[in-house]
């Protein structure tokens, strides 16, 4: 899923400083699952903003909505009849959802209520970790199902580097060495032959370095 973290309340308050009638919009997709942008978070953020603003003597009216997904056009359309009655939208969807809403509603300022994080997994309750950088050219079949681009701090293709000690990355004692994990897994799969091969330079053009990406599938049109 796409993960994220709430922006500090002060930051959101300063974004809405100029407005007294806004929408707080959540999303039932990834951000609901990682507990940062679902309907509960819409309620909590809205109450918090209202309380802070009223205590400051400048109340704000907030419409609370949570869309099925902010990244699909059909779920944004229902906002069209009323969106211009409000001065701005604080969206707590991921950056994709926020932008898509901005794109659809040209006259309404869109304000991010969260900082979008990474493509990750729920390792345990309250703990999410990155697994994929969406580089556009997956090599997991060669690396025991563990991604060198994401899991190695240097994204190297022939690791581990000299900074791997006892399975831990030199960058942070909380980070496991991606290449140690790859090697352990290749060994358990009896696929160490994959290790000894020189890998071609990665085509980063399939990643974000090639500019904003687009997928067109004629078969799905």
């Amino acid at each position: 899923m796409i993960t994220g973290t709430p922006k500090p309340i002060d930051e959101v308050l300063s974004m809405i400083e100029a407005y007294n009638k806004i929408i707080v919009a959540g999303c039932y997709g990834c951000v609901t699952v990682c507990r940062v942008g679902g309907d509960k978070e819409v309620q909590v953020l809205s109450s918090t903003l209202r309380l802070a603003r009223e205590a400051a003597g400048r109340p704000v009216e907030i419409k609370e909505v949570c869309l099925e997904r902010q990244c699909d056009p059909e779920y944004l359309e229902p906002m069209r009849p009323y969106i211009e009655d409000y001065q701005a939208v604080v969206s707590i969807a991921c950056g994709a959802g926020i932008q898509f809403m901005a794109e659809k509603f040209a006259k309404t300022p869109l304000l991010p209520g969260i900082n979008t994080g990474f493509l990750g997994v729920t390792e345990r309750q309250g703990e999410w970790a990155e697994r994929c950088q969406g580089c556009g050219d997956c090599v997991l079949h060669l690396t025991g199902g563990i991604c060198p681009v994401t899991r190695c701090a240097k994204s190297i293709f022939h690791g581990p580097c000299g900074g791997s000690v006892g399975g831990i990355c030199e960058v942070d004692k909380e980070i496991k060495c991606g290449w140690q994990m790859i090697i352990d897994r290749l060994k358990s799969l009896d696929q160490m032959d994959n290790y000894g091969k020189l890998k071609p330079y990665k085509g980063w053009d399939a990643s974000r370095d090639g500019g904003p990406r687009r997928i067109i599938r004629e078969d799905m049109k």
Partner: peptide, 18 residues
């Protein structure tokens, strides 16, 4: 009293009713 109570006592609510 909470700042909300104080704010409400000191002046009428400004929130427009939607």
């Amino acid at each position: 009293p909470s700042p909300i109570t104080i704010a409400r006592q000191s002046k009428p609510r400004e929130v427009p009713v939607s």
